[in-house]
């Protein structure tokens, strides 16, 4: 699938830089992707890969001293970069919503759940208090909260983590957004609750034909939930493609290494296939391909030259020697 004029969101060469002008640290480096209506895009990466920063940049939530630049940042037909802050806030509230990792801190502890949902409705849609109340109860029902009529008067601390995340989802879909960005929505939750929340997100996404961007460090979760996947490493996209293809035959050594380091992939073996080293930080990014110190296949070329995105649109890989079907590098 490639981007078209009908694409819901098109991001082209988005960069976010921190630090001084002379010595910038690019938390996100020339990232391009697009989201279609009714599809789930998974963005995976380890901590420090820039996956959360990119989503914050999309929402216009990067504050000084961060600097956001992009060749294109288009939502439907609107160029987000040309909008003033107020107009942009209107779009990000009405049509793009976001869910964060920790539901416990995303809700204001001083107000009831109903209050917070109704405020979200009021800001974007208005309506009388009674209408908003009915809508809020309906939303809580949609996200599977039992007895919404009484739950609406609860304070956040009276809810469990799973319930709070459901409330967050209710607030996020309050304005019928076309695009929902979920940043590690289940990391703070238990497995059985995680399964419930993901199922709920996917169900809502299908029903409303929303675009869903699922940002997570959990490869297996993305493998199960996403249609297309973007793999990020140290601020750059290293591989993109349909989930089924990426997880069947990864083309980038990093994706392969990530998959191999999962215990699931080492069944019956004594040791896990660990990827040595850590994601480079602000001061120790290597020259050439950013993965080269950790990559088992790295050559001298990788240590000097930075690879571009190779491959057909929709199935790209940022590597000089993409892996073939059997998982070996092509030369």
């Amino acid at each position: 699938m490639t981007e078209t004029d009908k694409s819901l969101l098109v991001v082209h060469n988005l960069s976010v830089a921190f630090g001084t002008k002379d010595n910038p640290f690019k938390a996100v480096d020339r990232v391009s992707f697009h989201v279609e209506e009714g599809e789930v895009l998974g963005i995976v990466g380890e901590s420090g890969s820039g996956k959360s920063v990119s989503s914050l940049a999309l929402m216009g939530l990067i504050d000084f001293p961060g600097r956001v630049t992009a060749d294109e940042l288009r939502f439907k037909t609107t160029d987000l970069q040309t909008l003033n802050e107020k107009a942009r806030r209107k779009i990000t509230g009405d049509e793009i919503s976001m869910i964060f990792q920790d539901p416990m801190t995303s809700l204001n502890p001083s107000y009831t759940v109903g209050n917070q949902i109704m405020e979200a409705i009021e800001v974007h849609q208005g309506g009388s208090k009674k209408e908003r109340m009915t809508k809020a109860i309906d939303l809580l029902r949609q996200v599977g909260i039992p007895a919404p009529e009484s739950r609406i008067n609860s304070y956040p601390h009276q809810l469990s983590g799973g319930m709070s995340q459901r409330v967050m989802i209710a607030m996020a879909i309050a304005c019928d957004p076309r695009l929902l960005i979920a940043d590690e929505p289940t990391t703070a939750l238990d497995v059985t609750i995680q399964a419930q929340i993901i199922e709920l997100l996917l169900k809502l996404q299908r029903e409303k034909q929303m675009g869903l961007v699922l940002i997570t460090h959990d490869l297996a979760l993305v493998a199960e939930a996403a249609d297309r996947v973007v793999v990020m490493y140290a601020g750059q996209i290293v591989e993109t493609g349909p989930a089924s293809e990426i997880f069947k035959a990864p083309k980038h050594p990093y994706t392969q290494a990530l998959m191999n380091s999962l215990p699931e992939s080492s069944e019956g073996k004594d040791r896990l296939n660990a990827l040595p080293g850590v994601v480079p930080g602000a001061n120790d990014r290597p020259q050439g391909c950013l993965l080269n110190p950790r990559c088992p296949y790295a050559t001298d070329r990788c240590r000097v030259e930075e690879p571009e995105q190779y491959g057909p649109r929709g199935r790209q890989v940022k590597c000089f020697y993409p892996l073939d079907e059997s998982g070996r590098p092509t030369v």
Partner: peptide, 13 residues
């Protein structure tokens, strides 16, 4: 130990 590269020290102390 196989994970020696884990200990690569950063350039700046």
């Amino acid at each position: 130990m196989t994970m020696t590269s884990e200990t690569q020290t950063t350039v700046r102390m």
